[in-house]
Design a protein around this nucleic acid. Structure first.
Length: 596
RNA sequence: GAGGGCGUAGCGAAGCUGGUUAUCGCGACGGCCUGUCACGCCGUAGAUCGCGGGUUCGAGUCCCGUCGCUCUCGCCA
């Protein structure tokens, strides 16, 4: 098709371009027909320019203008005119000018839209947006977020490249290894009955790159985990995968602090503190009830075992004698929501999600009195309780009594709900923190053996090396998570680089030497050839961009995401395949639950 | 696997305790309009109220089942 190619974009023209002859290519964003005069807002990635088809326009231009509908793709040639002061649109970047059309060509037509393309957020429902993702991505909001993501990744590449990191690709068809999440499998055509797996992360390959001497590595790596989706989780996602040799934990934390200082400044002009708060896993759990605390607000959880023990509340006493714990959280006084019976029950529901059996409460009245709920069991301890909680009139104190982890998690959920409902979350701020000293193992009650809490390649802290086997539960690892505004945005560790130590870890996690050798033999072999001490980390790109864009779903920052049912409504994947394809792959479908 | 929310025209929504012809905005279509910028004005079409069953004289509304979407728990080193 012959057409006039653009000489400028729709966001470029200014008053200083007055009188220029230009060509614009773009989409009809709005078309206002006043009978004798048309105003066409022409849109592309860069902005919107008003095109005028007026009284002096050639007849053919007027005719074409009359045919235009929303989202027609057109080419316009015209003259730039500065608008008279009274007609300037201060809302638009190009609001001081307009382009008088001399020629107008329709490049392609557009059917009636399923939803309007908005300069900001579209009001269509997510399902509809995903089905017509190509239209949804035209919205100003999506364009902005996709750009943000580009800027973010670009700033990362620039920073790391300037600091001697190599970007190295690792395979996406790899061996299935029995750790972590469920693997996506790819059947081999050449080897009947054998499968590749898509990587859950480039973990083993980046460690092997360290053995190869590439002592500073990074990759913008696609990762795959066949697990149920969430707002902040897709089965396919992108990590900034990193690994370094001859480093200790603090070296890695410092690199990351430098990286994100640079990136936030570069991309959002946001100044982060030079160093991020560090909390041990235990501190985080005890104080915030999660291993990914949102530090944009306070509301610390407080231990009250001693006060509970001195109380006369049977439930508390029972939990304590069963080895549990009692913790409390102060809900600060506020007008809305008042701590009504209904609201307290909402808080209780939040606590119960994580297994708490109930939520005890006490209101603080005037003159140091405590009222309602379980207050009658704390006679004589009013002042001690108020002092401990730093409570004042109008505050409410809520309690959970249970096993340690349930207690922490439940109050953690109440803390988050309170902060949201009371409006304690400061918009537009970014609070990073490090969580360190994670336990290396946790006990799998179903499988009846210990498992790696993160993965099996993380280094135990040296003081636990003699007690790995005798007391796995208390072993702390050289592990660290980076947390941003209540989301885990990165996770990493110093790795094991010693074959014997690595084998001990496998054994504790119930792998025989034979199994370990068959699954991870290539790593163990590499470690027989002078592996350097090394460690790394992997920030989630989608999550970080989501938080920077102040969204609550990573779908908002992924061009083509899948829905919660793991379906892509646009291309309708997954789908069935031809019999011939199955034959090639030596596959027989066991049973179809429903006919397709 | 489990729980909460939602499902009404192409899109977004209203429809209270069951009661005539299911309402509104955007969009579509036709017409009018020479300075709008979410243009305005007049008119038209468009809905088996997700699907199936039940209660009832009568169901968008109540009950049961089912499907889809969404958030969450489990799961996700």
């Amino acid at each position: 098709m012959e057409y006039k190619q653009r000489t400028v974009t729709c966001g470029a023209l200014r008053k200083s371009d007055d009188g220029q002859r230009v060509v614009l290519n773009g989409w009809v964003h709005r078309n206002r027909n006043h009978g004798g005069i048309h105003f066409i807002n022409l849109r592309d990635r860069y902005g919107i320019t008003q095109v005028v088809v007026g009284e002096h326009a050639p007849d053919d231009v007027v005719a074409v203008a009359g045919e235009l509908h929303l989202e027609y793709c057109v080419s316009v040639e015209g003259i730039v005119h500065a608008r008279p002061a009274s007609m300037v649109n201060a809302e638009m970047g190009t609001g001081e000018i307009e382009v008088e059309a001399l020629s107008l060509q329709i490049l392609s037509r557009c059917e009636p839209l399923p939803f309007m393309i908005d300069e900001n957020e579209t009001d269509a429902k997510e399902d509809t947006r995903l089905r017509y993702r190509y239209l949804d991505l035209r919205s100003g909001a999506m364009q902005k977020r996709i750009k943000l993501r580009h800027d973010f990744v670009r700033a990362i590449r620039e920073y790391l490249s300037s600091r001697d990191f190599y970007e190295i690709e690792t395979p996406t068809l790899i061996k299935s290894t029995p750790e972590g999440a469920r693997d996506f499998l790819v059947p081999s055509r050449i080897y009947p009955g054998k499968f590749y797996a898509l990587p859950q992360s480039p973990q083993l390959f980046k460690q092997i790159l360290m053995v190869s001497g590439f002592d500073k590595y990074f990759q913008i790596a696609r990762c795959y985990r066949d697990e149920d989706a969430r707002g902040d989780r897709q089965l396919e996602f992108t990590q900034l995968d990193m690994e370094m040799s001859f480093v200790n934990r603090d070296d890695i934390l410092l690199v990351m602090e430098g990286l994100f200082n640079h990136v936030f400044k570069q991309v959002m002009d946001y100044q982060l503190p030079a160093h991020f708060t560090r909390l041990t896993w235990h501190e985080a759990m005890n104080t915030y009830g999660v291993d990914k605390p949102d530090l944009r607000y306070g509301l610390p959880i407080v231990a009250v075992d001693d006060l509970a023990k001195a109380s006369s509340f049977g439930t508390f006493l029972q939990v304590l004698s069963d080895g549990g714990t009692v913790k409390a959280l102060k809900a600060p006084a506020s007008e809305a929501p008042a701590y009504s019976r209904k609201y307290i029950s909402e808080l209780e529901d939040a606590a119960k999600i994580y297994g708490a059996k109930g939520l005890a409460w006490i209101k603080v009245g005037s003159n140091g009195a405590i009222e309602g709920g379980v207050s009658k069991f704390f006679v004589g301890q009013e002042q001690a309780l108020i002092q401990r909680m730093e409570a004042k009139e109008g505050d409410m104190i809520v309690f959970v009594a249970d096993q340690w982890k349930k207690t922490c998690n439940s109050l953690g959920a109440v803390r988050i709900k309170l902060a949201r409902d009371l409006g304690l979350v400061t918009k537009g701020t970014f609070e990073f923190c490090w969580i360190v000293d994670f336990p290396l193992f946790e006990y799998n009650e179903d499988a009846k053996h210990w498992e790696a809490a993160h993965h099996m390649f993380s280094m135990p802290q040296v003081q636990y090396l003699d007690t790995l086997e005798s007391d796995p539960g208390s072993v702390k690892g050289d592990l660290y998570d980076l947390v941003l505004n209540g989301y885990e945005v990165a996770s990493g560790s110093i790795r094991i680089h010693d074959v014997e130590l690595q084998k001990r870890i496998f054994r504790i996690c119930n792998f025989t030497d034979e199994e370990a050798e068959s699954r991870f033999g290539f790593l163990l072999n590499a470690f027989r050839y002078g592996p350097p001490p090394h460690g790394g980390i992997a920030p989630g790109i989608d999550r970080m961009v989501m938080i920077m864009a102040e969204q609550t779903s990573i779908k908002e920052v992924i061009a083509f995401p899948k829905n919660t049912a793991a379906i892509s409504p646009m291309d309708d994947s997954p789908s069935s395949v031809d019999e011939q394809q199955l034959d090639d792959l030596h596959l027989i479908i066991k049973q179809l639950k429903k006919t397709e």
